[in-house]
Amino acid sequence: MPQAGWTGARKWMLARTRRLRGNPYFEASTMSSDKNVYIPAPAVCAEIGITAMSLHRWLHGSFDRRSGRYTPPVTNFPRPSVINGRRYWRRADIEQFMQSRTGS
């Protein structure tokens, strides 16, 4: 159950993750321990705990029109492979990024 004060984006992300959990492809991609498995963008978002827009900003950066400030992309976030117009990441790359992010 979402806690009080959660934004609409977080509620949407939780609902989407719950919908995806019933999808056999999503389950196979997120539960596999093989390091060379390619996982799709929704599975990456669910694993990291971010929204699709945050993933876009991590890859491309963002520009705030009100302040005129540009925020650069996250430097060590892995680049996806594009297959049939969809983005996929290697599981090993995502795990390496998460370890570098936590400092372990």
Rank of each mutant, 00 (worst) to 15 (best):
S100H: 13
P73V: 05
A15C: 12
R18N: 15
L14D: 14
F63K: 14
E47N: 03
G103V: 11
V37I: 09
R87K: 15
Y88N: 06
V37W: 07
E27R: 11
F26L: 00
H56A: 04
P73A: 07
R86Y: 12
Q96C: 04
G85W: 08
W6E: 14
T51H: 02
S67G: 07
S32Q: 05
A41P: 02
M31H: 09
S32K: 04
A4V: 08
V37L: 08
R65A: 15
M13C: 13
G61H: 13
T71G: 05
D34G: 00
P78E: 05
E95S: 08
A4G: 02
F77N: 03
S67Q: 12
R18G: 12
R101E: 13
A46N: 09
E47M: 12
Q99W: 10
I39C: 00
L20R: 10
Q99T: 15
N76H: 08
G5R: 03
Y38D: 00
D34H: 07
S29V: 04
N76M: 02
G61L: 11
R21N: 15
R18Y: 10
T7Q: 06
T17C: 13
H56N: 05
A92C: 06
G5E: 04
W12N: 14
Q99H: 11
A46H: 03
L20G: 13
F26S: 09
A9Q: 13
T75D: 04
V44W: 01
L59V: 07
P42T: 04
R18M: 13
S67K: 13
T102G: 04
A46L: 01
R57V: 05
A52G: 00
G22Y: 02
T75L: 03
F26D: 06
A9F: 08
N84T: 05
R90T: 01
T51Y: 01
M53R: 00
R79I: 09
H60G: 06
C45G: 08
E47L: 12
I94E: 03
R69M: 14
S29Q: 12
S81P: 00
F63S: 12
P78D: 06
C45L: 08
R86Q: 14
S104P: 06
L20S: 10
C45W: 09
P72H: 12
A41K: 11
A52K: 02
T75M: 01
N36Q: 10
Y88V: 05
P80I: 08
V74C: 05
W12R: 14
G85R: 11
R21L: 07
R19F: 05
H60A: 11
C45F: 09
L55K: 02
Q3D: 03
P80A: 00
Y25T: 12
R18C: 12
D34P: 00
N84V: 03
P2G: 01
S67M: 14
I50R: 02
R16Y: 09
A28K: 11
L20A: 10
S29K: 09
